[in-house]
């Protein structure tokens, strides 16, 4: 995302975070909440469109990943927003590094809320969570197999 885009964004307000990787989405979303924004989380563009289609719900910024599963990627979502909701700003972030930087830029615009923690700790937290995913994976896999074998998942 060009930095100038972030500089022009509105202060405070509601940010719709769209990312199909939950462990990245939840960290970015919580960081933005801690910076004073109201945050809505969407797991893919289709969900974002449902939120944006609610006329009574105010959204100031769509903060989206670029590569996403589903019928639309981030570029297509950005085009849709610009065509249909020109009042909404779009931040496109295609990597963890850029997402954290863009979130930090948004955080900087909240004059009345002190920055809750530094961007590097947000980035470290994402990497730590992604790395920790392996720790319970095997246990969960065998539990799932047991559930299927026992008919628990029927």
């Amino acid at each position: 995302m060009p930095e100038s885009d972030a500089e022009q964004l509105k202060v405070a307000g509601t940010i719709l975070v769209v990312d199909d990787e939950i462990l990245i989405r939840l960290v970015i979303a919580e960081y933005l909440r801690d910076c004073g924004y109201k945050v809505i989380e969407a797991a893919q563009a289709d969900e974002a469109l449902l939120v944006l289609g609610q006329s009574e719900r105010s959204v100031d910024v769509v903060f989206t990943d670029v590569e996403m599963s589903g019928s639309m990627d981030g570029f297509a979502l950005a085009r849709w927003v610009r065509a249909n909701r020109p009042d909404v700003d779009v931040v496109l972030a295609g990597s963890i590094h850029r997402s954290v930087q863009a979130a930090s830029d948004l955080c900087d615009q909240q004059d009345h809320v002190p920055k809750p923690y530094e961007p590097h700790s947000v980035r470290d937290r994402i990497y730590r969570l992604l790395a920790s995913r392996g720790s319970r994976k095997r246990d969960l896999q065998s539990a799932l197999e047991e559930a299927h074998a026992g008919g628990g998942a029927s």
Partner: peptide
């Protein structure tokens, strides 16, 4: 999320979802 180190005290899940797993299998696991 469950595979990660995040502490979670309560799981609130729907049963019928259009994913490979349903909520019941998730709950068992």
């Amino acid at each position: 999320v469950l595979q990660s180190a995040l502490p979670i005290q309560l799981l609130l899940t729907d049963i019928h979802m259009p994913s490979a797993l349903d909520g019941l299998a998730l709950a068992h696991a």
